[in-house]
Design a protein around this nucleic acid. Structure first.
Length: 137
DNA sequence: TTTCTGACA
DNA sequence: TGTCAGTA
């Protein structure tokens, strides 16, 4: 399984993303409305976020904290699809499979990998810190 | 129980 | 952005 694929796997429900990003569900949905992120959906219409989505949300968060408005962020984070989403939107395996995976050893490895590796630009990402915090407590 | 959309403040 | 309503 390629890194690209792993980063684009839709795995987290909004509750997990809230903890990871420290954003409210209201904010996350609001940013989605404005096209800042494109989480996948389950058959039940529930949002499923990927590592890429979470990372994007963290970038958005930092930008908001710096006083940048939605319009400004839209221009800075333009390509919502070109280099990541859509083409790879992995899918929502069945709910059972997803939940099972989210608690598996493989998942732990994935998380660890994300913490150590970071994104494809070999740059330390905000997500790494969030991930570490998420697993310590 | 959790999440979703829409709406009001 | 928070929060409430009515669903799925």
């Amino acid at each position: 399984m390629s890194d690209e694929l792993r980063r684009n796997m839709a795995l987290f429900p909004i509750s997990t993303v809230m903890k990871l990003t420290d954003l409210s569900a209201r904010q996350i949905r609001y940013y989605e409305q404005h096209g800042l992120v494109r989480p996948a959906r389950t058959k039940g219409n529930q949002r499923l976020f990927s590592f890429n989505d979470v990372e994007r949300l963290l970038e958005i968060k930092s930008l908001i904290e710096k006083g940048v408005n939605i319009a400004g962020i839209k221009q800075m984070l333009k390509p919502v699809n070109s280099d990541s989403e859509e083409a790879t939107v992995i899918t929502p395996q069945s709910e059972e499979q997803r939940r099972k995976f989210a608690d598996s050893k493989q998942f732990r490895r994935l998380m660890k990998h994300q913490m150590l590796t970071g994104n494809r630009y070999n740059r330390t990402t905000l997500l790494q810190g969030e991930l570490a915090r998420f697993f310590k407590t």
